[in-house]
Structures are given as C-alpha cells and as structure tokens.
Design a protein around this nucleic acid. Structure first.
Lengths: 336, 336
DNA sequence: TCCGTTAACTTAATCGATTAAGTCACATTA
DNA sequence: TAATGTGACTTAATCGATTAAGTTAACGGA
C-alpha cells in the first residue's frame, strides 16, 4: 500500500508537507505541491479513509437504517427506490453509505451503538418502528439523523404528503360517483393518523358518510391482513363500492379475496392503493393510487442530513414535505 | 467518547491490558478481566471500528457493487432481493456492507480504488458490465471478490442455473404442445450464451426447429427493446405461438405490444418470462417463468466471500450454481 | 545593521486500538 | 543455591493521516 510516507520519501519532504500539498493547504510552494501530486499519481497513491476518519473524526460515511421487521424491507419497491436515491445523492455529495442494523455477528448492539461503532457521520432512518426504544435512542442521540415518513422532535424529516395524497384519492373516487368508500389502514402511526384524518375530513367536506365499519385496520405491506379486512368489508350488510388499501402491495391481498368472491375490478368493486410503486402500474387494470415521490424523498433526506453534518452551527431541524401525484389507473368505476 | 484509555484509568491498568481483556487474551487474570469488562460496560464503552481497522488491516466491512448503468439497479426486484440477502448473511457473519461506486463527490476513482479507499475486506459484484475494464481490474486485484451471474478466472462466483432454467421452460412450453417457440434474449453475456445454447439444445432434443428469425436480440430489463422485438416477431409471415422473454420486466414491454395488437394472453399468444420476481406472480394471468433463487444466491455470495477473507490460505475459487424453480403460471396455452 | 515578516517547510503530538517485546515477582526444579 | 519457568502485567511501536506549533532562510523597511 502506498502511503504519504512513501511519497514523502520519494520527494524528499516530510509527511506533513505531503498531506498539506494533497489537501491544497496554502503553505506549500507551487513547485513542491506539483511535484508531490505528480509523485502521488505515479505511485498510485490512494488516501486511506480509515486513517483519515480516525484523525479527523469524520468518516464521510452515512448510515442507512432499514428495519426489516416492519415489513419495510429493502426489497419493497418503495423502499428500494428510496435507498437508490439516498445512495445516488450521498455519492454525489461525497459520502458512502453503510447499512445500520441491530446486532453484528456475535456482537450485540443497538442502532445507536452500531452507528457509533462505524463512526457514521449521520444516519437516514428509512423504515423502522418509530416506537422502538432503540430507534428513539438513535434519533435523540448526538448523531445527526433524518427520518422518513415520521417526525421526531429534534430531527429533520422528509414526509410524503399524506394529507393531500389521501384527499386527492378520496376526491377522485368521489368524483366517479362513489358514496360508499371504505378505507383499510395500516398500523396506527403518525402517517396512518394523517391519512385517516384526511380521509375523514375529506369525506366530511364532500358530505360522504363514513360508517365506523368502513374503516378497517390491517398491516402495511402485508397482503394477508388486507385480504382479511377485505373479506370483512364484503360481508357487511351494506358493503362499500370502493375500497382504499393501505398500500399497493396490500391491495394484492384484497385482489385475491375479490377473485375468490368472483368480483371483477372495477365492475363489481372499485379499488385504490397507495404508494404508486412500479408494480401497481403493470397490473391490468392499472391501479388507481397515489404515487409518493420516493426518489425525491431519498435525495432530500441525503441532502438534509449532509447539510446538518457540514453546518452543525447553523442547523435547525427541518420538515420537508414531498408532494406526490395521483395515478388514475382504471380500478375505479364511474358509477356517477 | 469512551475509549480503552478511560477504562484503563478507571481500572488502574494499562491500555494494553484492557485491550487484551476485552479480546479474551490468555495473559490477563480472571479477576482483572472481569473488573475491566464490568467497567467497560458501566462506562458504556464501544470499540471504535475505525481505529481497529487501521491497526489490524481488517475492516469487517464488505463492499457491494451495483452498477446502475446496466439496468440492474438496486430497485429491480431481482437485485434488491440479492442485496437483502447479502446484507442479512453478512451481518450474521459480523460484517457490515458499504456500496462501492465509481466516483465519490469530487474524487474520481474507479471501483478498485473505491474499495481500497474504504478498506473493504472484500467485494460482492452483484450487477455490472463485466466487460468494463474497471470491473475487470477489481476482479483481478488482490481484493477478494465474488461475482454473481458471471465467472472470472480467479474469483468465486454464484451462478443461477441458466442451462437448466431455460431447459425447464422450453420443455414446459413444448409439453403444452408448442412447436413454434421464439426467444428474445438480452445482451450477449455469458449468461445469455448459456440460455441461448440451452434453448437451442433443448429444442434440438425435442425435435423443434428454431428458425433464425425466432431468435431476437433485446436488452435486459428494458421493456421497450423487448416490445420492439415482439413487434418484429408478430410481423413474421409465420409468427411463433409462444415467446420467451429475456426477463420478467422485459415481458411488460412485450405485453404492451400484444395489447396494441389486440392479442390476448395466452389465448392468442403464449409467453414466458425469466427471473420469477414477485411482480410476475401478481400479474393476471400469472406469468410462467423460471424463478432464480435470489435469496440463496445472495447468501451464498456473502458466505463464500467471507470464507475467502477469513481463510485466505486454503482458499480456492469456487463456482456455486443455485438452482431455481419453474413457476407454471397461466400464460402458456395448452394447444396440444 | 538590526528587527520584524513571511514563505515554506519540519517536528511531534494525536486519533483509538493492537501486539511484540520487555519487566518483575514468585514458584519450581535440579 | 542457582537456574529456569511462568503468570500477569507494562512499555512502546505501530497503523496512515492531520495539524498546531516550531524552525529557518530570505527579504524589506527604517
């Protein structure tokens, strides 16, 4: 391995001078700096990020946290899009990314410890159970943290516009003539609360009644639970004409249930999803859903985090809301 | 930050003793070791991976390489499944993972340099243009490397069973009575060559003729190019009765084309994909395809890489073939 | 001529951990 | 008794880079 010492020897200067020359410090003469840079290049010198991190207390490495237990694993399209954009933006800004997990081999540590252990300059919490004490600890720690789809008090966060998203969906469905609209929601989180509130408020504004039995709990990204909720809705004496699912993937469970009952979409039942993942748009009929701006969310998360890392003095927590867009699809029948 | 020095002071021993005690070295008395461990725990000591890596020349960090240009980005389900399983298995074995890319902020470096810069103990090349000199350089370097879906001379590799996969598909299609089978293939890579050869051989074994115009080139994961190839096949004087696509995602392009021509699947045209990604199984009709064992491939890749890292002396390059399974779906009509 | 500046370096400490080599008290053995 | 061994430490070098503080020679101004 070629180190600054090798360059120093080759150039007949001290290591300090080499370091300064390579970092463009002002107190190195032009000629010396040029000579050092040339030598470095010809020897194939590469800085050692580890040594640099140790000395500087900055690793130029940010952690990304996906906790799989929540069903928000990397392989769900919404999250993999977020991951991809966090990665791209971080790299653009000169940071690498490392996954943060609980436990590492035989060592058992929590998220905070893992991030510290790897000297991450900051962490993006992309998908997690925000009630988990380990997550709370990380968010409350001195490590800069940005959360997605959730807000902690002293962290920046990127939120998709759940209020407007749900409103757009309900208005669209209402515009198609539906007056009996059911909503299957995910676990109660701040996101869910916003969607629920927006659902209720929009329905109220439109004068659409919302019987309690039209609101059904399920689990995000868990088609089975949404299937069960769908079954329950179908069994009602006065079933809805349209069902809004917690997310696109969950709709798959609902679809199976509808198939079992021999109900066609949208002729016998209208449906809508949430997320707007690519999968939803290759279905036939194309799913009506609200596309969250996953790419922008990831990029904004990285940007905000790195801003906080690099300007700790002027930093203040920020919430950024990323708007999405309604994907009309063809799963909502016009029954006007 | 609590360091071994703090523990050493608190316990009245030298830093060396602390280090040895925490690493279970034999020349520390039981009582001292216990006292040190207790103190470490009560002070909330965490080892510093950076310092350790610098001294030991081992980072317990492996690089993962996805080059997005090849269309094999993280957000494709096949690759995100691989990523997820590489991550899980690596963590189980005590390694973190970091993405390796070309360029990092203002620094321009190739893959090899990036991996060295971050002191990766090894690299999993998950999706890449294996002709790219930068990839070749990395694979040929002293850094332990495992490739997926491609074999370099001196690297271990994990291969999905392309020969058997294609054979299974062709035999299945043939079993349904088809004698005019077209194959749209991806860019010519070693994977493509195997599938092509297997396609031809199996057809030969079954006595099915393969006119040159039934073999069409396209690009992996690029629905548009497969759409064009599909159009060309439909325009033939004697079109096929079944089309095998380069991959499931590419089939989407073919499907659009069939829709435009008003052809129903499988009534008017039978089709099959390749990969068996979750998306393919939520389509209606369910896609007939060959599921590659992405989870096992990722786990095996991590296992093999870490084996090589930890036992460099006894290591020999290995190729592991992971079998997949035929997903029958309902996109191949029985025309027997 | 003498002093203060400044440019262009070098010296040496430091980040946190590991580890070969050294020390020392005490026990064992011929 | 002298030599040898051993258990339980400590000392100090080291990994590769950064950086505050120190050095030195050349130069300008009064």
């Amino acid at each position: 391995m070629v180190t600054i010492t090798d360059i120093a020897n080759a150039c007949g200067v001290s290591r300090a001078t080499v370091s300064k020359a390579l970092n463009g410090a002002p107190d190195v003469s032009r000629e010396t700096a040029d000579r050092i840079r040339e030598t470095a290049a010809s020897l194939g010198y590469l800085p050692n990020a580890t040594a640099r991190a140790l000395k500087m207390g900055r690793s130029y490495n940010i952690g990304v946290l996906f906790s799989d237990e929540t069903g928000g694993g990397i392989s769900h399209e919404y999250f993999s899009q977020i991951l991809e954009s966090v990665k791209a933006e971080s790299e653009r800004l000169g940071y690498d990314i490392t996954f943060i997990s609980k436990d590492l081999g035989r060592m058992s540590m929590d998220y905070y410890e893992h991030a510290k252990y790897r000297s991450c300059d900051g962490v993006v919490i992309a998908s997690a159970d925000f009630q988990d004490p380990a997550i709370v600890r990380l968010a409350a720690s001195e490590i800069p943290t940005v959360t997605l789809d959730y807000s902690f008090d002293n962290c920046s966060s990127i939120l998709s516009d759940n209020v407007r998203g749900m409103e757009a969906l309900v208005r669209f469905v209402h515009g198609k003539g539906h007056r009996k609209i059911a909503f299957i929601h995910g676990e109660i989180t701040s996101v869910t609360q916003k969607r629920l509130a927006s659902f209720r408020r929009t329905c109220a504004e439109l004068g659409v009644p919302v019987p309690a039995e039209y609101i059904r709990p399920a689990i995000y990204h868990d088609p089975r639970s949404s299937g069960l909720a769908t079954r329950a809705l179908l069994a009602l004496p006065d079933p809805p004409t349209c069902i809004i699912f917690p997310d696109d993937l969950s709709f798959m469970g609902g679809r199976s249930e509808l198939e079992k009952h021999g109900l066609a979409i949208p002729k016998d039942m209208s449906v809508a999803g949430y997320d707007g993942i690519p999968l939803s748009q290759v279905l036939r009929p194309r799913l009506t859903t609200y596309r969250q701006g996953a790419e922008r969310m990831g990029a904004e998360a990285a940007r905000l985090l790195i801003e906080q890392i690099e300007q700790p003095d002027t930093w203040l927590p920020q919430q950024i809301t990323v708007e999405g867009e309604l994907l009309e699809g063809s799963t909502v029948a016009d029954i006007g």
